[in-house]
């Protein structure tokens, strides 16, 4: 997610000019909006500031699937929602999409989807911290007697941060759906394939 400057950035990729204008009107109050009328243009616009991509699946030139493949080569940070005319299966999640919207897209649905994708990035960050602290807690429990832990200020801080984190996590994605669940597991596994990353 882009840091500091407030609004998250959404990149709209759509070959129909009228739809681009519509989506921009819906999004511009809350987001920094970039637009592209095709796959090649989308890849030119893509940089680290982009948090969410709305990607039309069927476009002349590069298809949405091709754009996705190229985009995933470059970054795994941003979330991509596929916009499609046909209701897809969960399988699109394993292809690398994070969510999907079925045309015609309604305003509320679009805004809700962008919001949930951003929440999911937040959730993943918190959840990484949860692992680091839980592992630390487990290591302390395995190596120090309970009496010593009970007197340790550091251990008390750790426990209070853990319980804080759990509430934050619950508040971030209170109603996780199946497609989100699959996408999150895919991301977790993807990160471990890249070498696990370091604790943070």
């Amino acid at each position: 997610m882009s840091e500091g400057d407030g609004k998250p950035t959404v990149l709209v990729v759509e070959d129909e000019r009228a739809l681009i204008e519509l989506y921009v009107r819906w999004l511009e109050d809350d987001y920094e909006v970039l637009t592209a009328e095709g796959g090649e243009a989308a890849l030119e616009q893509l940089d680290d500031s982009v948090d969410v991509v709305l990607l039309d699946r069927l476009m002349p030139g590069m298809s949405g699937d091709e754009v996705l493949a190229e985009l995933r080569e470059r970054t795994t940070e941003c979330k991509v929602a596929m916009v499609t005319a046909v209701e897809p299966d969960f399988d699109v999640i394993t292809m690398g999409f994070d969510d999907y919207l079925t045309k015609p897209v309604e305003r509320d649905e679009l805004l809700k989807t962008v919001q949930r994708l951003l929440s999911r990035s937040d959730f993943a960050d918190l959840e990484q911290e949860l692992y680091s602290l839980s592992a630390k807690q487990a290591a302390l429990r395995s190596s120090k007697p309970d009496e010593e832990l009970a007197e340790s200020e550091e251990y008390a801080d750790l426990e209070s941060r853990l319980s804080e984190l759990r509430s934050e996590l619950d508040a971030t994605l209170p109603e996780m759906e199946s497609d989100e669940f699959v996408a999150m597991v895919r991301d977790i596994e993807g990160e471990s394939d890249e070498g696990g990353g370091e604790d943070r």
Binding site: Y131, A135, L169, F181, S192
Partner: peptide, 16 residues
């Protein structure tokens, strides 16, 4: 690490 994160997300799905 992967297993912890997987189980955390899985139990969150079970909760929701």
């Amino acid at each position: 690490r992967t297993m912890f994160r997987f189980l955390h997300v899985f139990t969150a799905r079970i909760r929701s």
